[in-house]
């Protein structure tokens, strides 16, 4: 983190679908105040919300660290969940390990990670089974 960056950190609690999305909503509102275009805000909001939801469903929560620069936003989502056995497979649209009760809420369509990749300019994911998952996303402002 450098001086020209605004850092915000959010704790995302696990298994709480009612509050899921509150970190993304706060980031959205911050970007709006900073005058970022609505198209870019939309990309950030969707990518981050998908990440939040993944941490709620699969990892019992985690931490979102958001660095806002003049030209971009960097989002790091880190959890200490069960990890992903096969990241390549998890990136496949439609592939999901979400349980039935999660699907009943409208989640678990297997589009979370593909959406995060689709809406970001840089997307990295590292995962180790039994240790956790870290997702790093960068979105440049236009």
């Amino acid at each position: 983190m450098s001086a020209d960056c605004l850092r915000q950190e959010y704790v995302v609690s696990g298994n709480n679908f009612a509050s899921a999305g509150s970190a993304s909503e706060e980031v959205k509102s911050t970007l709006k105040k900073l005058g970022v275009s609505s198209a870019d805000i939309r990309r950030v909001a969707i990518a981050m919300y998908e990440g939040e939801i993944n941490m709620v469903i699969h990892a019992g929560g985690g931490v979102a660290t958001v660095d806002i620069y003049l030209d971009r936003i960097e989002i790091v989502l880190a959890d200490k969940g069960k990890g992903i056995e096969n990241v390549e497979l998890a990136m496949t649209p439609g592939w999901s390990t979400a349980p039935e009760d999660i699907r009943a809420l409208g989640f678990g369509a297997g589009m979370g990670l593909p959406n995060m990749k689709k809406y970001t300019d840089k997307f990295e994911i590292e995962s180790e089974v039994g240790v956790g998952t870290t997702v790093k996303m960068t979105i440049y402002f236009h």
Partner: peptide, 12 residues
Amino acid sequence: NVNVCAVATLAD
């Protein structure tokens, strides 16, 4: 359910 609102807000 309540998540519909989050999606509608975030996806504009």
